[in-house]
Amino acid sequence: MKKLLYSQKIAPFVFVLPFCLSLLIFWLYPLVTGIVMSFQDVTFGSSTWVGIQHYQKLAKDPFFRTAVFNSVEYMLLTLLLLVPIPMLLAVLIESRITKARGVWKVIMYIPALTSVVISGMLFRLMFSEGDGGQMNQLMQMIGRASIPWLKSKGTGWVALLLLCMWRWTGVNMLYFVSGLNSIDGTLYESADIDGASPAQTLWYITLPLLKPTTVYVITISVFAGLSMFLESFMLWNGNSSPKNIGLTIVGYLYKRGIEKNDLGYACAVGVVLMIIALIINFIQLFATGTIGPKKED
């Protein structure tokens, strides 16, 4: 028995056994129960089938609509802000013209070390509505009146998106930096010999060769954007923001499942989130040519 367990045939299975168990117990099982529960009314100890009732209710639920709209809007805005800007910053910081680049890289990553609790609290205090808050002091400096920042959607989202940019610009920049470092340096030398301008080099060499990194950053941004919850939870100090301006899909899932203990309905919210995430990922993988018919060059 011991000999068998030590043999080269069995050993690989022993090594991967924890993953198999974890996959079944903590991934497949909750995934399936989540889908099953979305067709049930779940109370403690008992559950009854209700068919697609939850989904019908979701289709008419105005809060859910707000949540989906907010999450998708947030995701699109973060894609606009957190892909091109970090990419350009990475190109700039890796070009030889920037001095002391190591220092800037270290500083720009620091926000990612702070927890959402702490960063959310800092931003809430910065954007506080009184005259003494920093952002309102800045408004007064340029001769404007104080704004109750977090009370309305436009200004509240400025704070939310700034919080997001503050935390992730440095991280995404470092992704692009490592992508840039993996590009073969001789390509730039030959471009230089051929007399390519910096703009041409950027457009014809850097951007195409950065594509794997770009796809990666877009993918994680799509997921992070769609499932954003804690940022808004901390910025508005809880799960109920004025007029639900900070309500997201996961926020609604949390509200229904944990705060109101309506697990079946909350699981339906989760299933819809999963479907949205899958659709967007497929669109994105097609658009970037990772799957589907290969374009001929």
Binding site: C20, L23, F26, P30, S227, L273, M274
Partner: peptide
């Protein structure tokens, strides 16, 4: 199994959160 590793990465944790909580 490595393919499954990638698969688990593409399902946000928040979706599994409630059933996992029950479990």
């Amino acid at each position: 199994l490595f393919f499954m590793v990638i698969a688990t990465m593409s399902v946000p944790f928040e979706i599994l959160m409630l059933p996992l909580y029950q479990e």
